[in-house]
Amino acid sequence: MSLLFDILSSVGMWEAVLRIATPLIFGTLGVLLCERVGVLNLGIEGIMTFGAMVGWLTVYSGGNLWLGLLAAAAGGALFGLLHGVLTALLGLSQHVTGLGITLFASSFSYFVFRLAVPTASSPPTVEPFRAYPVPVLSEIPFLGPVLFNQTAPTYLALGLVAVLAYVLYRTPLGLAIRMTGENPHAVDAQGIDPIRLRIGTIMAGSALMGVGGAFLTLAAFNSFFPTMVQGRGWICVALVVFALWQPGRALLGALLFAFFDAFQLRLQTVVDGVPYQLFLMLPYVLSIVALIVMARRARVPQALMQPYRRGER
């Protein structure tokens, strides 16, 4: 028991939770936006990989870190545009298109990476975001270092949760987005083009996914390797269901998953005689359990995965 207490009371553990959660927050908000407008985006895994690569490459070729994030967002938006055109405009299957984009974007990222650094035997590194202690606030015992000694993108992610919640629930644009995910016919009848709205929203959501990927190369680590996203994208898709399509709950879900991940890492080091793979499984098993509990109350956007075609019901 004292062992558990040691882990749970260490600043390092809780600091790691927020760090691990950051890419998940970006990704989950991205998926949430897409699904709120009625489009499933399984391209996330690939788009995150692409964002990770583009962000890293920008910094590696001399750009500054923020330019790297911006480039990752633009790269994500570009794949979002592709997904939007295929699913919202042409009405193709959202599953198949999304998986296709994941396969394509992942391979394409590696391809570009290899073009950029053809010979390196170990992945070249960049100088990543450093922790930025917020003046005064980071001095608070325990909470200070946990919450206010993070990298800038983590603060950005937390701020985005509030911004997105505000946009979705307090602005006419957010209402139109939610309405499109529920009933695009109604939106069209009010004189808003649901297809353009869908494409735009998917691009915005995909940009967030790109930034989530770039966090991995520009803050969590300092280099790119092709398998680094490691299923985080899929976790985001599940977290959106867990979050019941609400930004605040999405943050909660990301933190919960990150907590289990950070926790199992530390358990691995202190518990002997148990294969470490079992600990690796822990966050995934627990997210399935959480999903089962939460998803029963889910109010799925009613038009999710339904293509909209004018004049057809």
Binding site: R170, T171, P172, L173, G174, L175, A176, R178, M179, E182, N183, H185, A186, V187, A189, Q190, G191, I192, R299, P301, Q302, R313
Partner: peptide, 28 residues
């Protein structure tokens, strides 16, 4: 319309207000 153009998960007010304000207005 004969087939209602309504969003089941949204409130009455939200259904009625959709598209009645400029899309880029900062606050509904």
């Amino acid at each position: 319309h004969q087939h209602f153009a309504l969003a089941p998960n949204l409130s009455v007010l939200e259904n009625v207000m959709t598209g009645t304000e400029p899309l880029w207005k900062l606050r509904s």
